[in-house]
Design a protein around this nucleic acid. Sequence first.
DNA 1: CCAAAAGTGTTGCTGATACACCCATGC
DNA 2: GCATGGGTGTATCAGCAACACTTTTGG
Lengths: 248, 248
Amino acid sequence: MSREHQRGVDVTVDLVILTIRDGELNVLLVERGNEPYRGRQALPGGYLRPGETLEHAARRELEEETGLDAERLHLEQLRAYSEPDRDPRGRVITVAFLALGPDLPIPKAGTDASDAIWVPVSSIVTEPGSLAFDHPTILRDALEQARSQLEYTTVATAFCPEPFTVSDLRKVYETVWGLTLDPSNFRRKVTRADRFLEATGERRSAEPGRPATLYRRGPARLLHPPLLREGRTARTQTTPSPSAKKSD
Amino acid sequence: MSREHQRGVDVTVDLVILTIRDGELNVLLVERGNEPYRGRQALPGGYLRPGETLEHAARRELEEETGLDAERLHLEQLRAYSEPDRDPRGRVITVAFLALGPDLPIPKAGTDASDAIWVPVSSIVTEPGSLAFDHPTILRDALEQARSQLEYTTVATAFCPEPFTVSDLRKVYETVWGLTLDPSNFRRKVTRADRFLEATGERRSAEPGRPATLYRRGPARLLHPPLLREGRTARTQTTPSPSAKKSD
DNA sequence: CCAAAAGTGTTGCTGATACACCCATGC
DNA sequence: GCATGGGTGTATCAGCAACACTTTTGG
């Protein structure tokens, strides 16, 4: 059964770490210090070590790259990538992970990740050659996964530092989907959804306007019903509402 | 950077091959001929070979186990399993695949898979020990994935040999979800959904009753809107409709 | 008092459920 | 012709988008 099987496969993990900075979806990239693809931007990642699971390796790399406690981040496996020629060094299979977190600081200098930087995803051309290895493909898959997950799961809260307001959460959806959503209807949906949000009782009044109720993440992981992105109230205003509503 | 990384990882693929036989969801299991877990039932699978992708390895194993042209089957990656002690032989990582196909023949004797048998999933206790390795976990994940996919994608058609009727397709949903669905409303939904089904123009009149229109799979892969399993018309009739409506 | 953001109420529309009813075939 | 499953029509109902309106803060 094992008569001609591949021996000595190297296994790595690669991380697509997403956060929202300045109202834009950002991904953490590193500049490669070694060949191959030296000097090219790439997703952070590294080799699996003996005795650890892929998930553990992913958390370890995450902490090394961001200098943060990985406990605070949502981490999930995406899939494995195994094209035989994806790494010029030899047979290397990678398992990609998707990590989501609230506005994260720039990684500390002096660590493994001194060259790590946040890059707005809108500025990355996800075509072959823009990133090292098959990372353009991995990034594209991860983004689609993240956008899709917002519909069916409660992961959007992973982008919000606790406690957060309904507006904070809405801005996550708007940023990731590239839409504008109706504040009142959005509020109703997310507060109605069972165990999605838990009110803290506190309020916050940073900006002018009525103070907003603060919430924590609830225990729910799946959204019933899903919060579909139908593209109705899209940023591209196709609906001809002639009279400008906003104070004009 | 590679100072202490795990070398010589063995990589396998494992397959959760699902089909519908006699109105029940079945999975293909093999009896292990070698240690470890000799004589125990397990998911079919095997080692990755040099120069092939994981997807290729999965298709190859699929053909070896079922003796079928894997082109006809839907195949997709599930995720990787990497617990360090999941295989007593050493460090073996497996990537699980989900395969769906129409009522498949029992695999030919005399091949690798002479011991392969179809087993109704309802008869398998998905607890540690019922299957070899961590296959109970893999099977559980695969079933949840399959049930979930039926809602958002068009994979249900993978269970139907072409051409098929709307009833055939409905029975797939009913079997996998364990519900009964309203035939007329189901028909409307799936025929309305864009590019889900393509009418062949032909009809079939196997059983008594009006002949049914035959369909082929359409090019759509995602369902908009999704076909949610709300558990309304569930088999367990919770709604107290006192007067028996049916001809009584 | 005004602007701005939070939050609630209401209306009208869309889409789905439940089910009555017609259609076409085997026996 | 009658039982059986295929397929259409339709009344009712739930849920959501749109948006008017009230509340509560900062200036």
